[in-house]
Design a protein around this nucleic acid. Structure first.
Lengths: 198, 198
DNA sequence: TTAATAAGTAAACAATCGTTTACTTATTTT
DNA sequence: AAAATAAGTAAACGATTGTTTACTTATTAA
């Protein structure tokens, strides 16, 4: 049989992300995607059941999967708390800064009911994303370093700001001076650490 | 001449928000909206130029306008720092908790290029949203209480977590025990305050 | 070398999209 | 009471939507 053309499969995912990032999820259509990827609409349906299936797989496997891997690079749950936090923040900053299309879809993951549901389902059925971070926080609670709060609360307190700082990095891209620098990220991370430490 | 039916105008806005909240911005269509509001599609075009105009006005005037008003209730830039922060956090929590459709569109404001651009344009041309918060932070920088960082950085550090906590409140709505309570909000706010104070 | 078969294409499907045309209704001003 | 006029409706416009049908191409296993 004729083998799959993996280059076309990758083109679909790459260009879908590009359209979402530049024009918005609400302006992505299968026909626009096919045309931009220089393939027939039918080809997308060989690789994905339908549009929702494409979006969910793009979000869960392609975007969140790679994002998780990038964030956890050189991170170990046994690291000292402040070191671990700085590693996670810098990894987030570096990865997202260089992957705007991925960041765009991640943002839609918090708005779109479809993607939000897909994320929750995945977390329940196949184990949570960012499991090492769970362990890291749990360990530091048990060590008495940080207060014992639900994981979702920890997550909001410790990682929401870095996500918004990345958004601000992109918002400032076309301006003469970039205010969101690595130094600002580290300063911000230290402020967050100071708040959570008992 | 025949006067505008204000009830219909409000129905359009209300039902548009409802559809966006339940089905997502990507599933809002003018015909669906008209049918749900029990009016002719043409009626929407009497009040709004086109779909983009409707979305932008819904976002800027209806949602962000009311949101700003609600957050600043009983807030004064001259309040003590911790008091002001707690006021802003609790106002945010109370308002958004009771206005899920508004919260949904606010979330889309950070993903959708159209809405994001509209927000930035508005902030530049007609003065920033949440101006009293600007003043509040500036005052506390000058008083030497908090570090002198760009406003966007302050904003990410001090208010990103409360937005995500509200999202988690809604995510937990159907579960037996609500973990995002007013007490958790206040505890979280105190942690953020502790981090930023010099 | 050929039979088998999945990958891929071009073109089209009904349904729906955003928007408009042609018309009626309701209200105000004269 | 009638002229003027914006608000609103029903129906339809061409374009585009997600998806499929009918067909061709490229590859592998026999």
């Amino acid at each position: 049989m004729r083998p799959k053309n993996l280059a076309k499969e990758e083109a679909i995912r790459l260009i879908a992300l590009q359209i979402i990032s530049e024009e918005g999820l609400e302006n992505l259509s299968m026909q626009k995607l096919a045309k931009a990827a220089n393939i027939s609409p039918r080809t997308i349906y060989i690789k994905y059941e339908n549009k929702e299936d494409l979006l969910i797989k793009l979000f869960i496997d392609e975007v969140l999967g790679k994002y998780e891997k990038a964030i956890l690079e050189n991170f170990d749950p046994k690291m000292a708390f402040a070191d671990g936090m700085k590693r996670l923040w810098l990894n987030t900053f570096h990865y997202l800064r260089n992957n705007k299309p991925a960041f765009s879809l991640i943002r839609y993951g918090k708005s779109s009911p479809l993607l939000n549901k897909a994320f929750q389902d995945k977390n329940i059925q196949q184990g949570a994303f960012f499991a090492p971070i769970h362990t890291f926080l749990k360990t530091n609670v048990q060590a008495g370093l940080i207060p014992d709060l639900p994981h979702d609360v920890h997550s909001a307190l410790l990682f929401s700001p870095i996500q918004d700082l990345v958004a601000e990095y992109f918002d400032h891209l076309d301006r003469p001076v970039q205010i969101i620098t690595e130094k600002v990220i580290l300063t911000s991370c230290e402020i967050v650490i100071k708040g959570i430490l008992k």
